[in-house]
Design a protein around this nucleic acid. Sequence first.
RNA 1: GGUCCAUUCGUCUAGUGGUUAGGACGUCAGGUUUUCAUCCUGGUAACAGGGGUUCGAUUCCCCUAUGGACUACCA
Length: 502
Amino acid sequence: MAQVRVRFAPSPTGPLHIGGVRTALYNYLFAKKNKGVLILRIEDTDQTRFVEGAEEYIMDSLKWCGIVVDEGINEGGQYGPYRQSDRKGIYRKYADILIEKGDAYYAFDTSGQLEKLRADSEKEGKTFIYNASVRDNLCNSISLLESEWKAKLENEEPYVIRYKIPSDEDIHFDDLIREHIVVNTNTLDDKVLYKSDGMPTYHLANIVDDHLMEISHVIRGEEWLPSLPLHIMLYRSCGWNPPLFAHLPLLLKPDGKGKLSKRDGDKMGFPVFPLYWPFGETAKGYREEGYYPDAFINMLALLGWNPGTEQEVFSKEELINAFSIERVGKSGSRFDPEKAKWFNHFYLQKRTNNQLALEFRDFLRAKGYHVDIVNLEVLIGLVKERVSFVKDIWEQTDYFFKPPEKYDPEIIRKRWTENTPSLLSELKSVLEKIGNFSASVTEPAVKAWIEEKGYNTGEIMNAFRLVIVGASRGPHIFDIISWIGKEETIKRINKGLTEIGK
RNA sequence: GGUCCAUUCGUCUAGUGGUUAGGACGUCAGGUUUUCAUCCUGGUAACAGGGGUUCGAUUCCCCUAUGGACUACCA
């Protein structure tokens, strides 16, 4: 087989959402698996929808995800330029060739006229299709006399170039995921290939670029499946061999209503974008939520593809190795934010305490706490397994850095009796006598004291936790007091005694 | 409305002409932890419906239903 060359071809119309990221990811995995090349092509033929910053956003997102582009605007390559607006001069030639061959024609109908025709058809319960059935009654270079349409061109009347769909022909084509499909041309319409603004439409630009860039496999979203017969015909008209096609199932809205779209933003209770998007309607991203790119990619890869084994955790290299188009599913999937979270939890557990300490240190600095790395590593070790994100660590450890501001009333009710103050005072004197405050010293000492006096362990430990933590949560209490130190421990017992009182 | 695509636990999915229909997330229960969480163990839960074909269909075919995409001088 010739070299595998695939492309990811987004439109810079806003932030890339996770569906787009997944398409890019599958292209990337397929390319790497087959020792091929991934091309990033920016499809910006619609100048009215161009959004400032979107192109950068796309590139930043791919970079964050670890999706490495081989050819593109920044990467260069032998098949550039890689931005369609920079290729503007290329397309007209092909439209002209098609006209010359009789496979395309000039059309002068205005949008207003066509809109009205569509509306009228709809009223009658019919579908307006601009094709052989009505072509002759409309205003184009097929229905008009040659002298008429040539005069229009000379007068510089606005026109578009439409593809001339043949009448009543079954178009057969294959899709790597959906297998064989047949569509009759009578249901297709004469798509505009070249717009009156001098730009090609997606359909023309797409097949011209894919051909010129020697794309071997087109892997794209299922929303393109209906236009595949058109694309197949365009390749045929141009005398080119079409690439292989694979149409990916769509990512659905979590509430089950329709495909995921950019406009969903983060209204779903979780991000739909890889990165924060600061323009227009701002939206948060997976990166800012604290997801690790590897976890994010792993989760995304399994949404619509599976290896056929029970393995669910994959490094990027493992994904590349295991990936195949054949194992991409056929039906759309909505994704489960809980599972995404689980993936991140899993990946976080695999990180070392040192890595996490460094990540958490930045978080602490923002809050004005400065703690050395060694101490942070100890702290991380105490709470690591209960967090899914680095930012969760703070919620689990705030009381390590500052005494409780309030005490859980429910725990007071359950654990604070009239004996408690005197017991805690006694505990305090026991602790005051201890020089080394590590858990291996304090724990046996306290337990020995409890045993000697015949006290109730639960009664003491729960009250002790209450004054140290403020609630009934957290790791082993002796690990906590070891970390905060003797002085702070004593202070908190005193604070608890005065504030809870009785 | 038309065209095309799809349909296995709540979700992501595996799977086969004969299986106790498997796994993961979630959820529930028990255990561990004198706290909470984690963790461990166990449980719950699915082949959309109806016809065929067949000795036998979740698996193959057809119909229906449901969902989705497309139906622009947007991609």
